[in-house]
């Protein structure tokens, strides 16, 4: 793979192109996801009230080395439908990831699994991670489904661990996938 740490990253799946976002990608659509109560509820946040400048500051904090913020673009239309964030720690060799599908007509269309599978390959094979994990804050049932369907193990439930954005408290679910588990899961595809 022709990529060096710190350089913008571009990856592809069958349907989507993932690439490091730049300030120019802080479009009205991108900003709208941060201000959409339904989208943000999945992250246990209320609508953020961001403007374009706030979105640019967010995009600019990722260094394409220990933090990636990749837009998810449809290959056929170049429409951006969401983003994938990954934080590989070179010391522990554990990467945290998060994904948001902002365009609701793509919910339930298997985007998360297709995109995450490509990112897993990058994180394990190129970044040398030994584990990839995700934390689900709140009862984000579609996210729980996607982790389960991809073979992640629920390593723990932190009961009533954080305040809910709309009052009360909520659980945090920790999902993890080890390198050898990932290699075993992908093995059948190479038979």
């Amino acid at each position: 793979m022709d990529w060096r740490p710190g350089e913008p990253l571009q990856l592809e799946t069958d349907r989507f192109r993932l690439r490091s976002l730049t300030p120019a990608d802080a479009t009205i659509t991108y900003v709208s996801w941060w201000n959409d109560p339904e989208v943000q509820a999945g992250l246990n946040f209320p609508a953020r009230g961001w403007d374009r400048q706030r979105a640019i500051r967010h995009i600019s904090q990722f260094n394409n080395q220990t933090g990636f913020h990749l837009g998810i673009f449809c290959k056929d239309t170049d429409r951006m439908i969401g983003f994938f964030a990954a934080f590989p720690d070179p010391q522990s060799k554990v990467a945290k990831t998060n994904i948001v599908i902002g365009e609701k007509d793509y919910w339930g269309k298997n985007v998360v699994q297709e995109v995450r599978a490509r990112m897993l390959s990058f994180l394990f094979e190129v970044m040398g991670m030994e584990k990839v994990k995700g934390e689900i804050q709140g009862r984000n049932y579609p996210s729980i489904f996607n982790y389960k369907a991809m073979g992640f193990t629920c390593e723990g439930v932190l009961r009533s661990d954080i305040p809910r954005f709309d009052g009360g408290r909520t659980d945090v679910f920790i999902f993890g996938l080890l390198r050898d588990e990932w290699e075993a899961l992908k093995a059948p595809a190479h038979d």
Partner: peptide, 18 residues
């Protein structure tokens, strides 16, 4: 189970829990 029924996707899973 999950993986064996084509209609059992992420949104269906949310509807199931609810």
């Amino acid at each position: 189970g999950i993986g064996g029924l084509t209609g059992w996707d992420s949104l269906a899973h949310m509807r199931l829990i609810m």
